[in-house]
Simulated scan of single mutants.
Amino acid sequence: MTTTTDPSYVDPALINPRAVRLVEAFKNALARLRDEDGLTFDDLNAVADLLQRIQTATGAPLALVAMPLYSELFQGGQDGYTPSEDVDSPTYIPGSPRIDNPGTLPMRPDEPGTPLIASGRVLDGHGRPLEGAKLDIYHAADNGNYSGLYDDGVLRYNLRGHLFTDSDGRYAFTTITPVAYADPHITAVDGVAEAVAALGRSLYRPAHIHYEVHHPDLITPWRGEIYFKGDPVIPVDFVGGTLAPPALQADTVLHEDPEDIAQHGFQSPYRTMEFDFILKTRTSPDTITPKATPA
Rank of each mutant, 00 (worst) to 15 (best):
T281D: 05
P269E: 06
R156F: 08
Y204C: 10
M1E: 15
T4V: 14
T104M: 12
A13S: 09
D190K: 13
G240K: 05
D190L: 12
L163E: 03
S84T: 14
I99Q: 01
L14I: 11
H185C: 09
I99C: 01
L22R: 14
P178Q: 01
G144S: 06
A198S: 12
L14H: 10
G161H: 00
G240M: 05
L50Q: 06
P245H: 09
D136P: 02
V179E: 04
D286A: 10
P7D: 05
P94K: 04
L33N: 09
P184H: 08
I278K: 11
S89P: 06
V65E: 01
S89Y: 07
E131H: 13
G148W: 00
Y150L: 14
D151T: 14
Q267H: 12
H210F: 12
F238C: 05
D110I: 04
G191W: 07
P97W: 05
P246F: 05
Q267E: 14
G80H: 01
H214I: 10
G76Y: 04
D217H: 11
P68Q: 06
Y171P: 02
A247W: 03
I93L: 15
L69A: 14
A188N: 12
G76Q: 01
A182K: 02
H185G: 15
N16C: 10
T2V: 14
S284I: 02
S8F: 15
M107V: 00
Y138T: 00
I288E: 04
T2I: 13
P290Q: 02
I99R: 00
F164N: 08
G59Y: 08
R205G: 13
A57M: 08
S89W: 09
A180K: 05
F26G: 07
K280M: 10
I234G: 01
S284P: 03
D257M: 05
E256S: 15
I137T: 04
